[in-house]
Design a protein around this nucleic acid. Structure first.
Length: 955
RNA sequence: GCCGGAGUGGCGGAAUGGCAGACGCGCUGGACUCAAAAUCCAGUGGGCUUCGGUCCAUGAGGGUUCAAGUCCCUCCUCCGGUACCA
């Protein structure tokens, strides 16, 4: 077998690593440590696609490199194995989800092992293992047992929650309710996305534009008892602590955006708690109220006499010409005057029926209805009408706003439509964005900062000054206060699925079997709480209640201390298991704790976390949230889990050319194609429907900026690579690539395609290109013509001459530097250059070949091990010291330096590498061509960068 | 709309402000072969060229600089995220 044959050497070395436990990681790091983590995959039935090994190869290279540098490396792999597909498969076929899951895991494991990753497989775990989710349940109980202390800005045990006197006076049930109100895990009637067609409830992220992400079925919102996690308590810390992380700025900004912190003020508008016939609060009572507020200050909870709003622009208070409350606002009924009752009821019912999609669809056209009531603006005592409109969301701020149409685009649209007065209170001054006259006249909306007008004593202040002053004034008078709001909502943590972690929660039942509302947690020593083994799976449910409602009675009902309980039947979302798996990897078999604190302290935080950008927000935010709670409660030693994050770019399918034809089969240029309303394509000029046609690459040529049909150059063609998908048929299967080229070629190609973070199209020709490189490395060292694997005659025990030595050391330096920066594509290019050079040499110093094999080993470990053993070594190279380069050997004796005149390249000269300014100028002037061009000119300036370039500026 | 990211040969891509296009693919020509594959050698951004060169060229336009793919301003296109968050 003299030829490079990955089909033989790859399994051979995989077996070697496995039997020698080469990559088993010690319990504690020896000296320096590195924790490198891949986002573990969901083991789908489709198996691995080529996107997975991209990140996995990158981390594997880093790990193998750092092991050779003497670092203790933690590099585990596991399975994010709960998930809806296995459950839906069960509904279709009756196969239990666990069986499907185990089968899929086995396939994924086989595929990953086939790629030669240096995971410590002893640490493998799946989120579906009872031994694992035992601790997921445990962490839920920690969340349940924690309240957030705003003063200390941290989570504390619920037992430490101070109970106000008036609550404790009401008895134990009131105390319990008060505690439940403060727990990080709490229950809520919340609308769920019920999809009748799928017979299941979907998570918000599974609903796209009002339709299910899978299958595009309609989704309706109905209320259901849910578990929520109070992630909003941690919003501030989640935002601020981003600063300390070595993450891509784009991901940080995505998270900041998602958290959506805004600063403003809460202001109370008087509405009176007694109704009047005309819907207007009484003047006297307003004055009394204001006087009272002046003494008592701003209360924590808004009473019934006021409508509390949140605004980021308290400086526009004088411009508030109406108020809006959300249709779900608790005051809707109260504020509705009898003659408006019917209209209000209709409107609220309508908007309740609207799905998210409808609300989005109608985003352009504002709707609303007048309540008939008025509120009094605290700054000027004016009564302004209160409207109901669904452009105000109940879930943000206080669910009510003061509307300032002159300075808010949404309010402006609404005011225009309903003919509400528009009063400008900010003079934008001279602005390019708006017409000042129009703004002052209320004909145009301006959200810019400026100078206050129409604002009484505040006139003339800048927006910033005004904001500061009014906040202080309102606060002094007890009418308002500074406030911070977040777009982030609490996390809806329950799912109406079978295949997820059961909650360790029991609902107490009364004698008649009805829930009393009292909860009890499953004792920690009784965890894990496994799913019922015997379950029938219906094809679909006809109601959104959780499947576990149909669990066997002996699972569902529990008697403890002579009380009867029913188990919680919701299960946890898939995110739960992935929120803390990085901790369990450190101590996967620990039966006494989720992780041994000594082990946790030694290995955490994760030093490098690599995964797809699709998890930029949810997974990474949820995991950080849990981690902070665990940190507050003393289970972990760091306040952030993932120090450095890298997102690998998506791998697209091969480049495709697409032409377009109309119904008659005539070609239509790509520049004329537009999207039709029904999702199809149309000819923008004629409106005719268009069919896309795939074009073979040889039928295409480039004309100027665009691609055209070679046979018909007037027809423009689209050229782009598409996301891999089954429906498009452009999915590349790693099994096939490995069968055709070997794992080392696949790994190498994935890294050679381009920068890790970039989105890049796949190319089979590219795989074959790096395969050719590996063949050349093989031939550089192995005698291909021999019967046995023996060294190439050119490989000799000789001292390298100057030039080969320089090539070697430059390669070591370049590859090492590139690895430090995770610039794998250029590292590979440098090894290609090395190979191209040494293939031309008849004598190849054995030492140089050995160094190259070591450099190559993180990238193509199987071939490297094979060559290493051929070069006479009897153990794995995984722990051989990483080659060092000699600074002196890297330096060139003679360098070629460009000589420019007026910044234009005119000649190149060869000079000693250490030539100084004068020597360089002299050498440049001595050049025939330069001398000729300089003749008769006056040199104004000589710019010299030693070793780099010379530039003459002449007149 | 808003927030990110990106536009460099036929393609993937490379370039601490200092020789644009490293490396690979593809293509062209040649060697080997009866032939093909594989392999090897040479060439390969475009225009003009007396083959010495020379001009143009990193999405478009402007600017800073001796020097700009790289820095600044304006704009265009594509990709990703997000969307009534007051």
């Amino acid at each position: 077998m003299p030829r490079y044959n990955p089909a033989v050497i790859e399994p051979k070395w995989q077996k070697y690593w496995e039997t020698h436990r080469t990559f088993a990681t010690p319990r504690l790091p020896a000296d320096s440590k590195l924790y490198v983590l891949d986002m573990f995959p969901y083991p789908s039935g489709d198996g691995l696609h080529v996107g997975h090994p991209e990140g996995y190869t990158a981390t594997d290279i880093v790990c193998r490199y750092r092991r050779m540098k003497g670092t203790s490396v933690m590099h585990p792999m596991g399975w994010d194995a709960f998930g809806l597909p296995a459950e839906q498969h069960a509904k279709k076929t009756g196969t239990p989800p666990r069986a499907t899951t185990e089968k899929n895991i086995a396939n994924f494991r086989r595929q990953l092992k086939m790629l030669g990753f240096s995971y410590d497989w002893d640490r493998e775990l799946a989120t579906t293992d009872p031994d694992y989710f035992r601790w997921t349940q445990f962490i839920f109980l920690v969340l349940y047992d924690t309240w957030f202390d705003p003063a200390a800005r941290k989570g504390r045990p619920i037992a430490e929650l101070p109970i106000p006197g008036e609550v404790s006076g009401e008895g134990p049930d009131a105390v319990r309710a008060y505690q439940d109100d403060h727990r990080l895990a709490y229950q809520l009637e919340a609308p769920v996305n019920w999809c009748p067609a799928l017979g299941t409830v979907l998570a918000n992220e599974e609903v796209v534009g009002g339709l299910s992400e899978r299958g595009n079925h309609p989704v309706v919102r109905i209320p259901l008892r849910q578990w929520m996690l109070r992630i909003t308590s941690y919003a501030d810390r989640l935002e601020q602590d981003l600063d300390s992380l070595d993450w891509p700025e784009s991901i940080k900004s995505l998270q900041r955006n998602w958290i959506g912190r805004s600063e403003g003020a809460e202001v109370d508008f008087f509405i009176d708690d007694e109704t009047s016939d005309d819907g207007r609060p009484s003047r006297e009572r307003f004055t009394d109220w204001a006087n009272e507020r002046d003494e008592t200050g701003f209360p924590r909870k808004a009473g019934p006499a006021v409508l509390r709003v949140y605004t980021t622009r308290p400086d526009t208070l004088f411009g508030a010409t109406y108020m809006v409350i959300a249709p779900e606002h608790p005051f809707v009924r109260r504020l509705t005057q009898p003659d408006q009752a019917e209209a209000v009821e209709d409107y609220c019912e309508q908007s309740a029926r609207k799905s998210d999609m409808d609300r989005t669809d109608l985003a352009k056209e504002k709707t609303g209805v007048f309540t008939g009531s008025y509120a009094i603006n605290p700054v000027n005592g004016e009564a302004i009408p209160i409207w109901i409109a669904d452009y105000v969301l109940i879930s943000y701020g206080t669910g009510a706003i003061m509307a300032v149409p002159a300075h808010d685009t949404r309010d402006f649209e609404f005011a225009r439509k309903f003919k509400i007065p528009i009063v400008a209170v900010v003079d934008p001054g001279r602005s390019e964005l708006v017409n000042r006259e129009d703004v002052l006249m209320g004909r145009q909306c301006s959200v810019e900062d400026g100078t206050a007008i129409n604002s009484g004593l505040y006139n003339g202040l800048t927006t910033a000054e005004f904001k500061a002053k009014i906040a202080a004034d309102l606060s002094k008078k007890g009418l308002g206060r500074k406030a911070v709001n977040y777009k982030l909502r609490d996390w809806l943590f329950s799912r109406q699925h079978f295949w997820g972690e059961p909650f360790p929660i029991l609902h107490e039942l009364d004698k008649s079997g009805k829930p009393t509302g009292r909860l009890r947690t499953v004792p920690v020593d009784q965890l894990p709480l496994d799913l019922p083994k015997e379950m029938k799976f219906d094809a679909a449910h006809d109601s959104p209640e959780p499947p576990l409602e149909k669990a066997p009675e002996d699972w569902l009902y529990v008697t403890l201390d002579r009380k009867r309980y029913k188990r919680e039947t919701n299960t946890m979302p898939q995110w739960a298991g992935s929120c803390w798996y990085y901790l369990r990897f450190l101590d996967p078999k620990n039966g006494a704790a989720l992780v041994d604190p000594a082990v946790e302290k030694a290995w955490m935080p994760v030093d490098l976390y690599v995964g797809g950008a699709e998890h930029a927000v949810l997974h990474l935010l949820y995991a950080r949230f849990w981690h902070k709670v665990l940190f507050d409660r003393g289970y972990v030693s760091t306040d952030e889990p993932f120090q450095k994050l890298v997102n690998q770019g998506m791998i697209l399918g091969e480049m495709e050319f697409t032409g377009y034809r109309d119904a008659a089969g005539r070609w239509v240029g790509a520049d004329r194609i537009g999207d039709a309303a029904d999702g199809g394509l149309i000819d923008k000029t004629s409106g005719q429907p268009i069919t896309p046609v795939k074009i073979e690459p040889d039928a295409v040529e480039k004309r100027g900026e665009a691609f055209v049909l070679a046979a018909e150059p007037s027809v423009r063609i689209d050229s782009r690579a598409y996301k891999m998908s089954k429906s498009r048929g452009n999915v590349v299967n790693p099994d096939q690539v490995v069968a055709d080229f070997g794992a080392d070629s696949l790994r190498l190609y994935e890294m050679f395609m381009g920068p890790l973070e970039a989105v890049k199209p796949w190319s089979m020709d590219g795989v074959s290109g790096v395969h050719g490189f590996l063949n050349r490395v093989w031939r550089m060292i192995v005698d291909e013509r021999a019967e046995e694997i023996v060294l190439n005659d050119a490989v000799q025990d000789i001292e390298p001459e100057d030039e080969p030595n320089r090539v070697l050391h430059k390669t070591i330096k370049a590859v090492t530097d590139d690895l430090e920066q995770m610039a794998f594509n250029t590292a590979i290019a440098r090894m290609m250059e090395f190979t191209n050079y040494f293939l031309k040499q008849d004598a190849r110093p054995r030492a140089a070949m050995e160094k190259l094999v070591l450099l190559l080993s993180p990238f193509a470990p199987h071939m490297a091990e094979e060559l290493w053993s051929l070069l006479g070594h009897d153990k794995t190279l995984a722990f051989e010291p990483w080659p060092e380069y000699d600074e002196a050997a890297v330096r060139d004796d003679v360098v070629e330096v460009p000589v420019q005149i007026q910044g234009k390249l005119r000649a190149k000269i060869l000079v000693p590498a250490d030539a100084d300014r004068d020597a360089l100028v002299a050498a440049a002037k001595a050049n025939d061509r330069i001398a000729e061009l300089l003749a008769g000119k006056k040199i104004v300036k000589e710019i010299v960068v030693p070793g780099r370039m010379v530039n003459f500026v002449v007149k």
